[in-house]
Amino acid sequence: MNKVNPRREFFYATPAEVRDLLEKIAGQHLLEYRDVPEALEWRQSAHGAAPAV
């Protein structure tokens, strides 16, 4: 639960919009940005595969 903002307002933005804004703010200092998260465990569970140990 968000104790600071109990109204639970959401802001919608695409990953590309976020990346563009970060590039404007950080410029050359933006180290890494991925449009698609790695999420290995989620992808393994989504395909029914057991997680690698």
Score class of each variant (00 low, 15 high):
residue 1 M to H: 14
residue 1 M to C: 14
residue 2 N to I: 11
residue 4 V to R: 15
residue 4 V to E: 09
residue 5 N to W: 12
residue 5 N to A: 09
residue 5 N to G: 12
residue 6 P to H: 02
residue 6 P to L: 03
residue 7 R to Y: 15
residue 7 R to P: 04
residue 7 R to V: 10
residue 8 R to S: 15
residue 8 R to G: 08
residue 8 R to Y: 15
residue 8 R to A: 04
residue 9 E to A: 12
residue 9 E to Y: 10
residue 10 F to Q: 05
residue 10 F to H: 10
residue 11 F to Q: 04
residue 12 Y to S: 05
residue 12 Y to E: 03
residue 12 Y to G: 05
residue 13 A to H: 08
residue 13 A to E: 05
residue 13 A to I: 03
residue 13 A to G: 02
residue 13 A to P: 00
residue 14 T to R: 02
residue 14 T to E: 02
residue 15 P to H: 00
residue 15 P to R: 03
residue 16 A to L: 02
residue 16 A to H: 03
residue 16 A to R: 04
residue 17 E to I: 00
residue 17 E to T: 00
residue 17 E to A: 06
residue 18 V to C: 05
residue 18 V to L: 08
residue 18 V to E: 01
residue 18 V to I: 13
residue 19 R to M: 01
residue 19 R to W: 00
residue 20 D to Y: 01
residue 20 D to R: 12
residue 20 D to W: 03
residue 20 D to A: 15
residue 20 D to N: 13
residue 21 L to I: 03
residue 22 L to Y: 01
residue 23 E to P: 03
residue 24 K to D: 04
residue 24 K to L: 06
residue 24 K to C: 02
residue 25 I to G: 00
residue 25 I to K: 04
residue 26 A to E: 02
residue 27 G to A: 10
residue 27 G to F: 10
residue 27 G to I: 08
residue 27 G to T: 09
residue 28 Q to C: 02
residue 29 H to T: 07
residue 29 H to M: 10
residue 29 H to I: 06
residue 30 L to G: 04
residue 30 L to D: 09
residue 31 L to W: 02
residue 31 L to S: 06
residue 32 E to R: 13
residue 32 E to W: 10
residue 32 E to Q: 09
residue 33 Y to A: 06
residue 35 D to L: 12
residue 35 D to K: 13
residue 36 V to A: 10
residue 36 V to W: 09
residue 36 V to I: 15
residue 36 V to E: 06
residue 36 V to L: 10
residue 36 V to H: 15
residue 36 V to T: 07
residue 37 P to G: 07
residue 37 P to K: 08
residue 38 E to K: 05
residue 38 E to F: 05
residue 38 E to M: 11
residue 38 E to P: 00
residue 39 A to C: 06
residue 39 A to Y: 11
residue 39 A to S: 14
residue 41 E to P: 04
residue 41 E to H: 08
residue 41 E to Y: 06
residue 41 E to I: 03
residue 41 E to S: 09
residue 43 R to V: 07
residue 44 Q to A: 15
residue 44 Q to H: 07
residue 44 Q to T: 08
residue 44 Q to R: 05
residue 45 S to N: 13
residue 45 S to E: 07
residue 46 A to K: 12
residue 46 A to P: 00
residue 46 A to Q: 08
residue 46 A to T: 03
residue 47 H to M: 12
residue 48 G to S: 09
residue 49 A to S: 15
residue 49 A to Y: 11
residue 50 A to W: 02
residue 50 A to C: 04
residue 51 P to Q: 08
residue 51 P to K: 01
residue 51 P to H: 08
residue 52 A to I: 04
residue 52 A to N: 03
residue 52 A to E: 13
residue 53 V to M: 05
residue 53 V to K: 07
residue 53 V to H: 11
